[in-house]
Write a protein that binds this DNA or RNA. Sequence first.
DNA 1: TCTGGGGTCCTAGGACCC
DNA 2: TCTGGGGTCCTAGGACCC
Length: 414
Amino acid sequence: MDLATILHADLDAFYASVEQLLDPSLRGRPIAVGGGVVLACSYEAKKFGVQGAMSGRQARELCPELIFVGGHFKEYQRLGDAAMAVLSDFTPLVERISIDEAFADVAGCTHLFGQPAEIAETIRRRVRAELGLPISVGVASTKHLAKIASQVAKPDGLVTVAAGTEMDFLRDLPVELMWGVGPATKARLEKIGVTRIGQLQDVPGWSLQKLLGTAVGEKLSALSQNRDPRRLETHRRTRSAGAQSALGRRPATVAVYRPALLHLADRVASRLRGKARPGRTVTARVRFADMRSVTRAVTLDQPVSATAIIAEVAEDLVRGILADHPRERTISLLAISVSHLEERFGLQLDLPLGLADEKRRPGTVTGARRFGADRAIDKIRARFGWEAVGYAAVELGDRRAVPDAFRELAEKEL
DNA sequence: TCTGGGGTCCTAGGACCC
DNA sequence: TCTGGGGTCCTAGGACCC
């Protein structure tokens, strides 16, 4: 039996806790970060049923005294980093999975710092004392168990699952606490009478695979029986980079989608160039007024990272989508994503190959000249900030639900 | 002003090659 | 010549997570 040396540390209601830290008058009160959409909310707000991703109006209906606050996004980044640095004081084996959440394996440092549960308690005490933030920690023998334990520990708690007691710990917990069980899987399991993890342990693997597909079925079989082979991954390569923008309801015309796509391509491409990771597959997504969405992708024979090329390819894809849905006159979201990322060292010229080349409009500049223009823009931004220069006159309708600062926060390191 | 923005992984079917 | 099987790549959509 493996020892319980894996920690999962998770800051509680992170953005909301930061806001309450910065403004003491908000403490003990129901608050939500965001406006049009709830990005995060305090535990006082959760009591009313307010949740992340909920529309602001819906949240206000549930909790009339809810206080909306704008976000201090730089502070989120700083405090999230600081909390993770506390983990790193104990072990280099840290796998950060988001701004406010990480795994750590303390197997190699118990001789220095004590039992895993003691280390977890020290981490919680330090984050509270040094940063003023509540953090919950789960301690167990696997990532899956540690993650569940930290959820059970919330808010502001510590739960240890001793080695050998894993199956007992899991038995009575609801299936939706498992990693990978969302609304759809939960509903399917409910149909066969399964709502607790213990019941899942009794369903034969082949039956689960038939119900949920081979991958999900096998995974849930394994996790429910405490077979979790995953190791910590301290360095993970990003596989794709994308950007999207909700538009409200806009006519599906080139005057709407061309500037919007250029803006999205600019965001994506500058990140790709910044990390020297061009990609071969460009995917565009259009969401219509009824919230149904359609995606279309093309894989080029050369990786690209030039703004103009990505914008052009995406525009071709969007034109194709709209041509196939002639009755849809209104779009509510556009998205671009680039995947099949490659590594490039040194100067890389995007050559206009593949689709972009075949369908190139007359008068467009060549790959090398585009790359030069992009490099100039990148340099100016490096010195003066993102807003200093770029593809101006991008008119996305300036009632954007989410501030740009939040987008930047959400952009992961490639 | 109903319904954000960033990702990962899986599936199913078709193309293509051996 | 016909048929089949396996492997890989690609596209489109869906489920899930933070």
